[in-house]
């Protein structure tokens, strides 16, 4: 800007040019600690706010009636449920979902779904679905997330309830040391749902067993 002013927290983002005493500098890299810090204060750093970015992206996805999961799965030729960085980014680009994002927002997205050098695209698709469900259930108390008191007696109601919960189930299960490579015992699964506020009715447990049981 023409008039010098005091720096604001949200001046600091990837790609921005900031000027010190008339010398322009472009931010081309940020260290992990700075990023961690910013991500903890999403209100002050909207470009580091995964929910805001996913929310904007979700509107685009919904407007275009896009089902992004199959696109990522096609790119995941080894069926690992994650992609390396290059393929993850090129798939996002291919869907034209990064066009409206700046470098910082793309980096935020990537960091959110990165674990070691793997990018867990399924968890990104989950988050889009969660945000959509949460948005569409706003103002309708019957589908709002509930506390322990009401137990869903049908699998369908249970799944809808699980979907609007803020907890990311797939990520939680994947990271739990009691699960193995996408598999978990029904008892542990029940325990994990309960730990995060979802008590399963016997009928639901039964239906989960019937639908999702695999040979050990």
């Amino acid at each position: 800007s023409q008039q010098p002013r005091i720096f604001r927290p949200n001046d600091i983002y990837l790609g921005n040019v900031i000027s010190f005493n008339g010398n322009d500098f472009q931010i081309i890299e940020m260290d992990n600690m700075s990023l961690d810090f910013c991500e903890h204060f999403p209100d002050e750093f909207p470009m580091m706010d995964t929910f805001k970015i996913i929310g904007d992206m979700m509107h685009q996805i919904v407007d275009r009636r896009l089902d992004i999961r199959p696109h990522f799965r096609r790119a995941d030729t080894k069926r690992r449920r994650w992609l390396d960085q290059a393929v993850f980014v090129s798939t996002l680009d291919g869907l034209a979902l990064t066009a409206d994002l700046n470098d910082q927002e793309v980096l935020t997205l990537m960091r959110r779904f990165k674990d070691a050098d793997s990018y867990y695209y399924e968890e990104m698709c989950d988050l889009v679905s969660h945000v959509y469900a949460k948005n569409s259930s706003m103002g309708t108390p019957s589908t709002k997330s509930r506390k322990f008191t009401i137990i869903d007696s049908s699998l369908e109601a249970f799944k809808q309830n699980a979907r609007v919960r803020t907890i990311q189930w797939r990520r939680t299960f994947r990271k739990d040391p009691q699960t193995h490579d996408g598999f978990v015992t029904l008892a542990i699964l029940e325990k994990l749902f309960k730990k995060h506020g979802l008590q399963l009715a016997d009928a639901v447990v039964d239906e989960i067993r019937r639908t999702y049981e695999v040979d050990p």
């Binding site: 992004i68 449920r81 698709c125 699980a162 029904l186 049981e213 040979d215």
Partner: peptide, 18 residues
């Protein structure tokens, strides 16, 4: 004990219904 594929369950939780 009963073993569950949690990815398939999560696929059904996080559907694309728009």
């Amino acid at each position: 004990s009963v073993v569950i594929n949690f990815n398939t369950l999560c696929d059904d939780i996080y559907i694309c219904d728009w």
